[in-house]
Design a binder for these strands. Sequence first.
DNA 1: TGCAATTTAATTGTGTACAATTTAATTTTA
DNA 2: TAAAATTAAATTGTACACAATTAAATTGCA
Lengths: 144, 144
Amino acid sequence: MDILKLENQLCFPVYALSRHITSLYRPHLEAIGLTYPQYLVMMVLWEHQQVTVKELGQKLWLDSGTLTPLLKRMAENGLLTRKRAEQDERVVNISITEKGENLKQEAASIPEKLFKELATDEEQFFLLQKQINQILSVKSSQNV
Amino acid sequence: MDILKLENQLCFPVYALSRHITSLYRPHLEAIGLTYPQYLVMMVLWEHQQVTVKELGQKLWLDSGTLTPLLKRMAENGLLTRKRAEQDERVVNISITEKGENLKQEAASIPEKLFKELATDEEQFFLLQKQINQILSVKSSQNV
DNA sequence: TGCAATTTAATTGTGTACAATTTAATTTTA
DNA sequence: TAAAATTAAATTGTACACAATTAAATTGCA
């Protein structure tokens, strides 16, 4: 087996699947004015209401170089506010707005639609999810 | 279970794993002057020597908007040449150069290194690969 | 206390992704 | 066969990713 053939790679299928899933999300997210990374930010905010840029970066594994411009765009769209913390001016707090809260209802139907479009059976879906999370948990424990 | 929680998504682990794998490749690929998408192009060329932009796009699921500038950069680096086909001037043939061929030896040790760094056992690795490819094969058959 | 080290975001620069449009060549069809 | 439709790349514009650097605030320690 030639290890430098595309079909024998793990990396390429994961990379291709990631872009494929994003492309399935795109029309649904476009309808509510979000990109996929912005949707991830909203999922964090729907759960926590307020987080720092650092916390967001830890949850999504993105750095400020990616997050700062992304959060500025979302603030312009009225989904969140960006405000320096008073106790520590280095920290920027990201807070969900009412408009951002309201978006949750519109987004509620998306995961199920995606699930169907991915056309994979439920058992396989959860197995895959579990396996990938296992690999990722090794990574996150390495970072501690 | 809240379907709008990050931890319950399949999409996010795949997206995170994809970026994680790319970040593991980065130092190895940087050492031989490639980015990850450029490495994918080289893998196709190591196998086929010459392909059209369209064929490349089909194999990597990328369009000309992504490939054209990427291939221009690789041509500047001397890894490949870009030439309009004589029989059909719409088509651009991408051919590997000797420099590009020679790079294969330098890249040969990368997959094994990655495999070890991913810190996942062999059996799990191949199972994951198989499952993702199953999902992707549904997609590619939908496209026919 | 006071300065060095650390921490948190922002900035800069390069390289993808991808939708939408454009351009040029080829094929189809009225 | 000439106009219409199709095809293949390129172009344009927007939005990530991420390395490297910078800037400002805070912390730690001599």
